[in-house]
């Protein structure tokens, strides 16, 4: 696809305007930036609609690429100017965010291996089961291809969400229980 110049220029203007508005609003840190934030997002959305109007689904993807490329210019532009040092909060968060081993010896190692197995193969299998269950539930009302694609989308997405949320759960037994419960739900749903 080679986009026609007027469409490209109009999209670029909207994207640049939208990003500039967002940048200004966020640098004001909450002081009267509501209109700018809304306007910035609206301009980005308008750019995507313009691209979609010209080139259907390929146009939307093209517009998103254009927006990300423009955002990089803004970010690297900001990189040339030194800013104020980071607020204390970031330092505190970073300080507490280290995955530390609280238990010594073999118990810690076993716990680590179990966490890996839980988040890797087990959560992956459970997510695949959930995807298949979604297919089973969607099959009566959707075309088979549509139901299948829901499963193919859902399985990796569920795995990613599950992995992130499970690691945010500090209690190990609760992590295991969640995976077990979801696994049983998926297996029973498919067996019925």
């Amino acid at each position: 696809m080679s986009a026609p110049l007027p469409l490209l220029l109009a999209s670029l203007v909207l994207i640049a305007g939208g990003l500039a508005a967002l940048r200004r609003a966020w640098r004001q840190r909450g002081e009267g930036g509501g209109a700018l934030v809304a306007g910035g997002w609206a301009a980005l959305l308008a750019a995507l609609i313009l691209c979609a109007g010209g080139y259907a689904d390929r146009g939307v993807a093209f517009g998103i690429v254009l927006a990300m490329a423009a955002a990089l210019f803004f970010v690297f532009g900001a990189a040339l100017r030194p800013l104020a040092p980071a607020p204390r909060r970031t330092l505190r968060a970073a300080k507490t965010a280290m995955p530390e081993s609280r238990e010594a010896g073999w118990r810690s190692r076993l716990a680590g291996i179990w966490t890996f197995v839980l988040l890797g193969p087990l959560a992956g299998l459970v997510s695949a089961l959930l995807g298949s269950l979604a297919f089973r539930l969607a099959q009566p009302v959707l075309a088979p291809a549509n139901a299948a694609v829901i499963a193919f989308f859902l399985a990796p997405l569920a795995w990613a969400v599950l992995a992130a949320l499970l690691l945010m759960e500090p209690r190990r037994w609760r992590r295991s229980a969640i995976v077990l419960a979801l696994g049983i739900m998926g297996a029973v749903g498919l067996a019925v």
Binding site: A93, A97, M98, P99, T115, A164, L165, L167, M168, E169
Partner: peptide, 13 residues
């Protein structure tokens, strides 16, 4: 708490 646990999960993965 959420930020810390999300950061911890992020680091571990």
């Amino acid at each position: 708490g959420r930020v810390d646990s999300a950061l911890s999960a992020h680091s571990l993965i």
